[in-house]
């Protein structure tokens, strides 16, 4: 197990180098001049532009620029934006917002999704099952910005129980509404996933054995059927944790939250290569760690899987 984790962590290194390089090339290939972008609609002062270009190595070939960047990253310096702001500052300012939003939403989708799925599976064909099936279908089909705006109007403006937008009320008040919106689609997927796999394991032979042992229904479902039906759900949750940490561009926009997603969109627009590369690398790292956790969790959930 320890060796397995070490090997997986070592694999992270080439992935990070590869990813940063690809992102670097892609951003480099974007049309437009980042220094001119600083000046907006006016023409940039040629002298200042030349100084900035030299400072940020913009006149050098791609591989040299990448070398400057990656050697900085390896010494812990993520670089700075073209107007002189340290990228680590941006990350430490923006990331907590995304983290709080993402984790809240993750908790919501996992808890509500799994509970809804279990009830739906156990009451197959009954009223509650239909409620879950219809409501998940509705959630999957409504676009995030529509749901977001409707909830803002209803809970923020009409009922006034949550802030309409922004984060000045802190966690949880300011985060609950966007988290619900962000979680909605995944929650629906999880509910359906749990429903299917639960229905499958309830029919399994070992569940019949558990009933024949005289265990109370709660224990038959909670201990014997649950463990097995959670395995596919964990895969989805791990994947989704990575996706949630990537920042939710639309949700952050609708609720005016200063998270990673919004920053990333803006930086792409301003051709801020180091910011884009830095943020994407960070997200890739989170993704890799989430995947590693999923794989390790597999071994916990299913003893038939062993890592050497």
């Amino acid at each position: 197990m320890g060796r397995y984790v070490a090997r997986r962590l070592l694999q992270v290194i080439p992935v990070v180098i590869g990813v940063t390089f690809i992102i670097f090339c892609l951003v480099f290939a974007l049309p437009g001049d980042p220094i001119q972008a600083l000046a907006g609609d006016k023409r940039a002062d040629p002298n200042i532009a030349a100084i900035l270009r030299a400072h940020y190595h913009l006149n050098e070939p791609l591989y040299q620029q990448y070398w400057h960047y990656i050697s900085g990253v390896l010494t812990g310096d993520l670089g700075e934006t073209y107007n002189g702001r340290a990228i680590s500052d941006i990350v430490s300012e923006r990331f907590p917002v995304t983290l709080k939003l993402g984790l809240t939403s993750f908790a919501l989708e996992a808890v509500i999704g799994i509970i809804a799925g279990i009830f739906s599976a156990l009451k197959k064909g009954k009223f509650i099952d239909n409620v879950v099936l219809v409501s998940t279908l509705v959630l999957i089909s409504i676009p995030v910005f529509v749901l977001g705006s409707v909830l803002q109007l209803e809970f923020g403006v009409n009922l006034k129980i949550t802030p309409v937008a922004g984060i000045e009320h802190g966690w949880p008040q300011s985060y609950i509404l966007p988290a619900v919106v962000l979680a909605s689609t995944s929650m629906a997927y999880i509910a359906r996933l749990v429903r299917t796999s639960m229905m499958e394991s309830v029919r399994a032979d070992y569940v019949r054995t558990a009933i024949a042992k005289g265990l109370p229904t709660r224990r038959v479902i909670g201990v014997h059927a649950m463990r097995n039906s959670l395995i596919p759900v964990v895969t989805f949750l791990g994947f989704d944790l990575g996706a949630l940490m990537g920042g939710a561009i639309i949700t952050e926009r609708v609720f005016n939250m200063p998270g990673i997603g919004g920053q990333l969109a803006q930086s792409v627009y301003l051709r801020e290569r180091p910011v884009v590369v830095g943020l994407v690398t960070l997200l890739v790292l989170i993704y890799l760690v989430a995947n590693l956790l999923v794989d390790l969790l597999y071994a916990v959930l299913d003893p038939r899987i062993r890592y050497e």
């Binding site: 399994a204 032979d205 070992y206 019949r208 054995t209 558990a210 009933i211 024949a212 042992k213 005289g214 265990l215 224990r219 201990v223 014997h224 463990r227 097995n228 959930l301 299913d302 003893p303 038939r304």
Partner: peptide
């Protein structure tokens, strides 16, 4: 009564035992 006074042995022990719980757990549960 089930398990305590009337018990059953199933045909295929591999599928009738829960694959993700240790046999000690499954026996001890009784």
């Amino acid at each position: 009564l089930r398990g305590a006074r009337i018990a059953m042995i199933f045909q295929d022990a591999l599928s009738s035992l829960n694959p993700v719980l240790s046999v000690g757990f499954q026996l001890g549960e009784m």
